[in-house]
Design a protein around this nucleic acid. Structure first.
Lengths: 261, 261
DNA sequence: TCGGATGTTTCAATATATGAAATATTATCC
DNA sequence: GGATAATATTTCATATATTGAAACATCCGA
C-alpha cells in the first residue's frame, strides 16, 4: 500500500487523480464504484479518468472490471533497464548464486520500503514469496536492514515503528516481534559488521544474510541478500556466508566507483 | 515508439500530458527542454508535471536528468501478474523449453505490436535481443504473425505496411524485405497450418516457429514461439518443431477453456 | 567573471476538469 | 421472463484547477 504523498502538488490534481486510479486498480479495485470510493471522486470523474487510462494502455477493461494495462508492463521493464545497477550486478549475483545455491535478492530503498529489483531463485527448491517488483517494509527484511545501516538511531526507530505498524493487519502477524531495545542492539552489531541478518522476522522459516552496496560517494544505494529456508541456514552457515555476501556487495560497489575499505 | 492515440479524450488533458511526460522519459528524453519539446508544452508546465510524477514515484530525478521511477517497476510486475496467462502458461513453456533447449517466447497483441510477456532463455548460449516488455511490429515476428492468423487479408496488408514503415530508420534495415505478394502467400500457408515461421525477417540469423493460443471463445489471445540461431534451426528441424509448438499452444488454450479442434 | 542554458516559482486569465443529473446498459432476483 | 437494482456512459453549466508568460534562481562552460 504505497502511500502516495497525500499533499497533491499544485497544478496537478487531475494527473494525481489519474495516478490514484492506477493505484486503486493495482490494489485490486476493479469496478468504478470501488475505484471512485478509494480516490474520492464522483462516478463521472472516475469513469473519465479510467477511460483515458484505458486509451493510453495503462489500464485494460475486461468483462469483469479494470486491470493494469500492457503499457505498464512495457514501462516497468524499461524502468528496470534504466537502473544500471541490475545489469552491472548480474554477473556478481550469478556467481554468488552458484557458490551458495541459495536465493539471491537485490533491492533498493523506496521511501520506507525495500523494492526488490532482482531475484535469482536458487536451486534448493523451496520458493519464497518475494518477487521482483515487490515492496516490503525496510525494517523487517534483511536487505532493508542493510539499506538502513548508515542511518542514525532516530531513523532506525522511525522505520522500525513504521514497519511494525504496516505489519499489523497482515496475515502472518507475529504478536511478539523483536522489541525495540533488542532490535537496536542488533542493528548496532550489523552496522559495525557491515552486514545484516534476518532471522525469520519477515517470513517464518526463512533466514538471510544481507550486505550493502555503495556508490562512488560511499552512500548505500542498494543491498543484496543470500536467503534460504531454515533447514539450509543453521546459525553456523549464516556466519560463514556473511563474508561471501560482503565480498560480493563490495565487488559491485567497486564497479560503481567505490574504493574505500 | 507506441503512438498514443493523439486524440486526447475530453476532460483528461492534464492526465494525458502527464502520461506523455512518462513516454518522453521512456524514450530517452532526460531534460525538461527535451521533454517539453516532445510533448509540446512550456517549460513551466513540463516542470510541474515532471515534479508531480517524481513525487508519485513514476519518475526519478538524477543529477543528469529524469529517468523512469521505481513505482513503474512495481506496477509493471503487478500488471504482468494480472495477466493470468503468464502463470498458467509457465509450466507448459518450461516443458517446451526443456524439450527443445531453445528460447521460448510468449507474446500478446498490443495495437499493431506484439508485446513479449514471457521469455525462457534456452540453454544454447546465444542470446537474442528480445526481452520481456519489448514491443515489436506484429508483421515482422513469428509470434506476431501467429497472432495475425485469424485476420483477413486487408488487415494483414495494413499490418505489413505498418511494420515495414516502422522498420525504416532502424539500424538493421534490410532493403529488400519479403515483398507483399510472397508475404501473403506465406501467411495463407501459416493460417492453414495453424502456425507461423519467422525466417530471419526480424533479426538476422534468428529463426522461429510460432503457434497461437486461443481463449474459451476461440479468439487468439496470445502466441508462443520456439526460437533459435540458424546453426540450430535448419529447415528440417523447424518443420519438426512445428507440431511441438502447436501442441504446447493447444495445451495452454485448453486451460483457457478452448476445446475445439 | 561573464553569458547562455536549464531549473524553479509566481500569478492573472481562461481553458479545462468537475459533479449533478439524465440516459443506457448490464446484472440480479423473484 | 419481466421487474428491479446496480453499474456504465454521456451531457452540460459552473467554478476551479491548469496554463503560459514572465521574473527569478542556479548551474554550467568559456
Amino acid at each position: 500500500m504505497p502511500e502516495h504523498d497525500n499533499n497533491i502538488p499544485p497544478g496537478a490534481q487531475a494527473l494525481f487523480r489519474g495516478l490514484a486510479v492506477i493505484d486503486a486498480v493495482a490494489q485490486g479495485d476493479a469496478s468504478l464504484p470501488a475505484i471512485g470510493a478509494r480516490i474520492g471522486c464522483t462516478r463521472s470523474t472516475t469513469h473519465r479518468l479510467a477511460a483515458a487510462l484505458v486509451q493510453a494502455g495503462y489500464l485494460r477493461s475486461t468483462p469483469n472490471g479494470y486491470l493494469l494495462g500492457a503499457r505498464l508492463i512495457e514501462l516497468g521493464f524499461k524502468a528496470r533497464e534504466q537502473l544500471p545497477l541490475v545489469k552491472l550486478a548480474q554477473p556478481h549475483l550469478e556467481r554468488l548464486s552458484q557458490l551458495t545455491q541459495d536465493t539471491i535478492h537485490l533491492g533498493v530503498r523506496e521511501g520506507g520500503d525495500v523494492l526488490y529489483i532482482e531475484k535469482l531463485p536458487g536451486t534448493r527448491g523451496l520458493e519464497m514469496r518475494s518477487r521482483v517488483g515487490l515492496r516490503m517494509p525496510l525494517a523487517l527484511t534483511g536487505v532493508g536492514k542493510a539499506l538502513m545501516l548508515d542511518l542514525d538511531e532516530a531513523a532506525w526507530h522511525a522505520l522500525y515503528e513504521e514497519g511494525l505498524a504496516r505489519r499489523a493487519g497482515q496475515p502472518g502477524l507475529r504478536e511478539q516481534f523483536t522489541p525495540w531495545d533488542a532490535y537496536r542492539v542488533q542493528m548496532r552489531e550489523y552496522a559495525a559488521a557491515g552486514s545484516s541478518f534476518d532471522l525469520e522476522e519477515n517470513e517464518l522459516g526463512v533466514r538471510c544474510v544481507a550486505a550493502p552496496i555503495r556508490d562512488a560517494g560511499g552512500a548505500i544505494v542498494a543491498a543484496l541478500s543470500v536467503t534460504g529456508a531454515i533447514p539450509f541456514m543453521p546459525e553456523a552457515r549464516l556466519r560463514d556466508l556473511r563474508p561471501e555476501a560482503i565480498a560480493c556487495a563490495r565487488a559491485i560497489s567497486h564497479e560503481l566507483g567505490w574504493n574505500q575499505p
